[in-house]
Computed example of a mutant assay.
Amino acid sequence: MSETYKSEPVQRIGFIGLGMMGLPMLENLATQGAASGFEILAFDTANAPFEKLAAHAAWGTTLRRAATLDEFAAVDAVITMLPNSTITNAVVAGAGGKPGLVDVLKPGAIVIDMGSSNPGDTMELAALLAKAGATLIDAPVSGAVAKARTGTLTIMVGGPEAACARARPILEKMGNNLIATGKVASAHAMKALNNYVYAAGLLAASEALLIASRLDLDLARFTDVLNASSGRNVATETKLSQFIIPGTFSAGFALRLQAKDIATAATLQTLTGVEAPQLNLCKALWTEASAALEPAADNTEIFRFLQQRNEAAVDS
């Protein structure tokens, strides 16, 4: 790959994965990217996202649907926003006799993995793409659906500096806080660890809230105490009075995805040789909650799971 090619701006972009996060991210990219001359091909196996995109101002001009991955042969960069590493691996490396992006992309192309992938898998995919003359950068996001809609996500970015610099104008259309994390897979590792720390805080806050409710304490006042004291964390500030106490449980991030991210963080123990007993406990509880609740359960429903768990223990 020549230095001249590396310096060329990205104009043709592929976007794979139009779920709860991916669709609003693509909508912002298409809206703001029009002024930058971006031409976007979007791919998903579901039809529903495209029914919504048909009303987008860029639809049919600078935003179109790709029928197969083969159509990405001419793109300069491809964004993947997929649920897990298994699906991402299949899309990038190919699976079941079907070709992946590695078989399709032109030399010099960039793959931007914006999902919450396993760092070990990310390193393997980066090496695979490098052999084909392409580059992988990892750019997971934080901020959930609300910030995906407003284009104000925090985006962690790991990978070679030249590729990250080329990707920056794309990422800036979806997030307003870009944090360079270092080498490839570093962003995925930091995202997984961040989500573990958040989940641990939410779990602790939910347990404390449950105990407070059994003591017949004023839960709103207790939340005020937490937020004015050393127990304050993002869960106490943005989840208790907003979603848990009123019982709406609609913060916008799936509990099963939270459980998946914690499981990813737990794999880093093997990679690093560090034992993290609290991480293992957190993983076990969130995995149990994910199995017990509905697939669409919000992550704030960890409180409801703890509540049901304790009620079952009392009944037995």
Rank of each mutant, 00 (worst) to 15 (best):
Ser2Phe: 05
Tyr5Asn: 14
Ile13Ser: 13
Ile13Pro: 15
Gly19Pro: 02
Pro24His: 08
Met25Lys: 02
Glu27Gly: 05
Glu27Tyr: 00
Ala35Val: 11
Ala35Gly: 15
Leu41Gln: 10
Ala48Glu: 05
Pro49Val: 01
Lys52Gly: 04
Ala55Ile: 06
Ala58Glu: 06
Trp59Tyr: 05
Thr62Glu: 07
Asp70Pro: 00
Ala73Phe: 01
Ala77Asp: 10
Pro83His: 01
Ser85Lys: 09
Ile87Thr: 11
Ala93Tyr: 07
Ala95Gln: 13
Lys98His: 14
Pro99Glu: 12
Leu101Asn: 07
Val102Ala: 14
Val104Arg: 07
Ser116Arg: 02
Pro119Ala: 12
Glu124Pro: 02
Ala130Glu: 15
Gly133His: 13
Thr135Lys: 02
Leu136Met: 09
Leu136Lys: 11
Ile137Pro: 03
Val141Phe: 09
Ser142His: 04
Thr150Ser: 15
Val157Tyr: 00
Val157Arg: 01
Glu161Asp: 13
Ala162Thr: 11
Ala167Ser: 05
Ala167Phe: 00
Leu171Cys: 06
Asn177Leu: 15
Asn177Met: 15
Thr181Val: 13
Lys183His: 14
Ala185Tyr: 03
Leu193Cys: 12
Tyr196Trp: 11
Ala200Met: 12
Ala200Val: 09
Leu202Gly: 14
Leu202Lys: 11
Ala205Thr: 07
Ala208Pro: 08
Leu209Pro: 03
Leu210Gly: 06
Ile211Gln: 10
Arg221Ile: 05
Phe222Ile: 06
Asn227Gly: 03
Arg232Glu: 12
Gln258Ala: 08
Thr264Tyr: 10
Thr264Glu: 12
Glu275Tyr: 00
Pro277Asp: 01
Lys283Ser: 07
Trp286Ala: 08
Thr287Phe: 09
Ser290Arg: 09
Thr300Glu: 11
Thr300Val: 06
Ile302Ser: 09
Phe303Asn: 10
Phe303Leu: 07
Asn310Asp: 15
Asn310Leu: 15
Val314Lys: 14
Ser316Leu: 15
